[in-house]
Design a binder for these strands. Structure first.
Length: 572
RNA sequence: GGCGUUAUAGCUCAGUUGGUUAGAGCGAACGACUCAUAAUCGUUAGGUCGGUGGUUCAAGUCCACCUAACGCCA
């Protein structure tokens, strides 16, 4: 038994995430958390919504709501959808929480005290009419490059040219349309990551077991060009965590907030504090996960994220933790994913392209999505979602191989022996061979799961299901029943025990279906198998069961075609 | 324009440090079985590994160039 801290990259608040976002962090993190819990480990699995920054403000404005209210509502929506997918967070927090405010300010203060923060004067556009600075997307004007009159301060959407707000011709406020603008000096804080470069480099070198994808991205940022660059960690916005030096005011920083990328990863820690508060626990209960001086020294910490998040998790956030000079728990293993593409292109939140989490749950139960996404997780390279592949995989794996196994064995038993585990005969050579095979397969499955090889785990699990069908096919109790009903009873007994085994082993991937099978079998003990010889005898003769409803209805050609059409365009 | 990633059977993907006949699942064909969601089990057929040229006794696996797709940056 070990202690595992697991975090998933925190999804941004402005709307519902698509399946590419889901498979890139939350879903594999959930798989790992469920597996470790099933193996009896103590797990703290945390996730939250990332609520600060310009896009949140703009989305709120578009929805006609105060940003705080908008975020609160969207948090509830995302939380509900996470539940719908069976994401088993111990806590789903919010980066706007009081805990994160306090911690972020605390870290900034510690970093400043240690000399890791410098002040920089910059020129920014200020709107007199709005009484505020206009960063990036808050300013519009005519593109100096192509003449498009709705170019944004950071980029022209027409010619895609990256812009500086001061480049725009006839600039105006995107908030009020006012052209009463001026360029003002404004001061900002920069995190001096560059002076921690060697420490970060050494730290990453010590992580020899990290995926190549992860270390290569980190190394690139560390060594390319001028090397690791200092990052601005403040912004002239209203929505965010006010810049304070610990609990003190920060002269010259009045009215400014921390940049979203500074406070978002700190929420991983704050989320544990939120968890403690929500459960009426003392601070020591969350600190034992995060402070190596308060019990976290034996914690194994694993982060899950898409590849776009790697630099922040390998460099910026560690720089924050190291720079604080305090004994915070650092990540031990970092599992990053590539992108999932949709029918030849990218999933896109801004363009509304692809399948979004709420829509997915409207058309099919979570287990279908969990299975396909995990068994096709973009681990080594980008991977591709197509409706045809989805339909075929799900029908074959879930309906035909697993679902039908449970169906055939329970129905066969009911028709020949009744709805109770039959008595008679005993396991023989065929059964010994099966158990021996399954023991090897189980070991491979466990190894793959422990190493977070998601696709491989799915393939091993599927092979275990298929081995069950192979067994039934070869011993053919329906034939033997005519000549040796006792031995047929033993085979059927084993078949029913196999169904329970499959349910237990599948629970990290398919929590809902797993539970359905166990309920139908009246199986109360769901503990992970230790020794298959004894495990496969635990449903004893006379143990009553029910034939479950169809576990996985097949996706019909009509449905696949219908959905393919429905999701071919752009979401409203 | 710079940097980076990817390019393996019809489809989705595996292929450790270069080494005998390149693997899996799906799909296809054929066969077996009939308990089951027309499910299952078995067999077979399909790639010379994007292209060209190198290094090597030996390359899908290293190098160069080219092509294509994607991504990041400018």
């Amino acid at each position: 038994m070990a202690r595992h801290l697991i975090t998933s990259a925190i999804p941004y608040i402005n709307g519902i995430k698509h399946l590419g976002n889901l498979v890139g962090s939350q879903l594999p993190a959930d798989l790992y958390a469920r597996y470790l819990r099933a193996r009896g480990h103590e797990v703290m699995f945390l996730c939250a919504t990332d609520e600060h920054g310009t896009p949140a403000e703009l989305a709120a404005a578009k929805a006609g709501k105060p940003v705080a209210e908008y975020c609160a509502e969207m948090h509830e929506v995302q939380s509900g959808i996470a539940d719908g997918f069976g994401l088993s967070f111990d806590h789903f927090g919010r980066s706007s929480s009081p805990q994160n405010h306090a911690l972020t300010q605390h870290f900034a203060g510690r970093l400043a005290d240690a000399g890791h923060i410098r002040e920089v004067s910059e020129k920014q556009v200020y709107s007199n009419a709005d009484g505020r600075f206009l960063p990036d997307r808050y300013i519009e004007g005519t593109c100096p490059n192509c003449g498009y009159d709705k170019a944004r301060g950071d980029q022209c959407e027409n010619c895609t040219k990256q812009l500086d707000p001061t480049d725009l011709i006839e600039p105006r406020s995107a908030v009020s349309g006012s052209t009463d603008l001026e360029v003002r000096e404004t001061k900002h804080l920069y995190l001096r990551q560059s002076q921690m470069k060697d420490q970060l480099d050494a730290w990453i070198d010590s992580k020899s077991d990290w995926p190549v994808l992860t270390t290569s991205i980190a190394k690139k940022w560390l060594h390319d060009g001028d090397g690791l660059r200092d990052r601005g960690i403040t912004r002239d916005l209203n929505w965010g965590i006010p810049v304070r030096r610990g609990k003190e005011d920060w002269p010259g920083m009045e009215g400014k907030v921390f940049y979203v990328w500074f406070d978002a990863p700190i929420e991983y820690i704050a989320c544990a504090a939120e968890w403690a508060e929500a459960n009426g626990r003392p601070d020591a209960d969350w600190e034992r996960w995060w402070r190596t001086d308060k019990g976290a020294d034996d914690v194994r910490y694993t982060q899950f994220m898409g590849k776009d998040n790697v630099p922040f998790h390998t460099l910026s956030f560690p720089a924050t933790l190291i720079g604080s000079g305090e004994p915070w728990k650092m990540v031990d293993h970092l599992k990053s994913f590539n992108y999932l593409n949709y029918d030849g292109g990218q999933f896109s939140t801004s363009q509304g392209r692809g399948i979004f989490m709420d829509q997915a749950l409207e058309i099919l139960p979570a287990d279908y999505w969990r299975w396909w996404l995990l068994s096709h997780a973009p681990e080594s390279s980008d991977s591709e979602f197509t409706w045809e592949n989805f339909q075929q995989s799900v029908n074959k794996d879930l309906a035909d191989v697993l679902g039908n196994f449970v169906s055939r064995i329970t129905k066969f038993c009911r028709s020949r022996f009744g709805e109770a585990v039959p008595q008679g005969g005993d396991y023989g050579a065929d059964e010994a061979a099966l158990i021996s095979d399954l023991t090897d397969m189980l070991a491979r499955y466990e190894t793959a799961m422990e190493q977070m090889e998601v696709r491989k785990s799915a393939a091993e699990l599927r092979a275990i299901w298929a081995r069950g069908n192979e067994y039934l096919q070869s011993v053919a109790p329906w034939t033997l029943f005519k000549t040796d009903p006792g031995q047929a009873a033993a085979q059927t007994r084993l078949g029913l025990n196999l169904a329970r085994l499959f349910a237990v082993l599948s629970s990290p991937f398919l929590p809902t279906a797993s539970e359905k099978i166990l309920t139908a079998l009246n199986a109360t003990d769901t503990s992970w198998p230790d020794d298959l010889n004894s495990f496969l005898r635990e449903l004893e003769p006379g143990h009553g069961f029910d034939v479950p409803d169809v576990l996985f209805a097949k996706i019909t050609d009509e449905q696949a075609e219908d959905w393919s059409t429905r999701f071919s365009g752009v979401r409203d």
